[in-house]
Design a protein around this nucleic acid. Structure first.
Lengths: 171, 171
DNA sequence: AGCACCGATGTCAGCTGCTGTCATCACGTA
DNA sequence: TACGTGATGACAGCAGCTGACATCGGTGCT
């Protein structure tokens, strides 16, 4: 991330990263499938947390309730505000990184859809709830790292979900 | 597309494509920014059509009405069913192509948001309507190329939008 | 006709991302 | 000590992509 900030993502070579990390280029590619993936390291963990939260939500919870527990569950991941901000600056500066971010979000939504379906939620409600949930998640994250914000991620997510409930009026 | 089907996208080299097309590799890269972009050739046109449709929709149209005209406007693009199907088979077979497709959809949504805002639609309604519109567009396209479907794209899109209106109940 | 211009294409060299393969090395265990 | 085993290095090589320059065919002007 230091290097990406100094020279930009596109101008940074894997050889440089490897050198700074004190390993070989070959070793870098054993840890990350490609140059971009490095910036999305925690994404499987994030996905697992949300899926587990949905799976573990109360039996009588509505789909949107389940989404709520998932949004809560990932609070532990988003703690280092500065790091998240720099990371986002880098991603926003490079189109191929945005592509990667979008597919991560997409996979996340698909995984949550599956978790909801496993609880007996039918289509298209499962997909709809999952998509909406990821949408809220995204907006919450963006608000959290927005300049001037002082609230914590969990709080923001809860507020947004409450607002969404009002807009959609129930359920 | 022939080559992609024969050997798969990943196994097809640009040199092979260029040869089949009777040009040089260098020439290929003058027409397409990269190997993937070839499959998304008409996307600017599609985007322009939708943006223009939104811009040209009646002054008293609701945001969702404007989206409706945009969905209608692109009917002319989706005519060759067989071609669209093969194209989608290829995209679904390769992750990097899915990344590209996702960012195209994202840019499309952003463009439509802008078009709505130009008509005086405020945030967050503009974004919400645009996102929803692209969602409908996507589902409509998927239904259109689904095996066994006999309806035309325009018809499907209209039906889906009508259904959405019912679900969201008005506006 | 002759000439100058220009856009499209070819040629070539080169960097970088990424991969397969084999060697090496450190470490825990029988 | 000898033997696996997992992590790393070394090396070669392919493919995507780019910059720089040459070439060539057409178009318009004189």
């Amino acid at each position: 991330m230091e290097l990406y900030l100094e020279r930009g993502f596109g101008q940074t070579t894997v050889a440089q990263i490897a050198e700074r990390a004190g390993v070989t280029e070959r070793t870098f590619f054993r840890y990350f499938t490609d140059k971009r993936e490095m910036l999305f390291d925690g994404s499987e963990r994030l996905q697992q947390l949300m899926v587990d939260a949905v799976a573990g939500s109360p039996a009588d919870a509505t789909p949107l309730d389940s989404i709520g527990t998932a949004l809560d569950a990932v609070g532990s991941v988003f703690v280092d505000l500065t790091r998240s901000r720099t990371r986002q600056v880098i991603i926003d500066s490079d189109e191929s990184l945005q592509e990667r971010e979008l597919i991560k979000r997409d996979r996340l939504a698909t995984a949550i859809t599956g978790a909801l379906r496993d609880r007996g939620v039918e289509e298209p409600v499962a997909s709809l709830a999952a998509q909406t949930g990821i949408g809220v998640f995204h907006v919450a994250f963006a608000s959290w790292i927005a300049p001037g914000n002082t609230l914590g991620y969990a709080e923001i997510a809860r507020n947004l979900l409450a607002e969404l409930r009002i807009v959609t009026n129930g359920s």
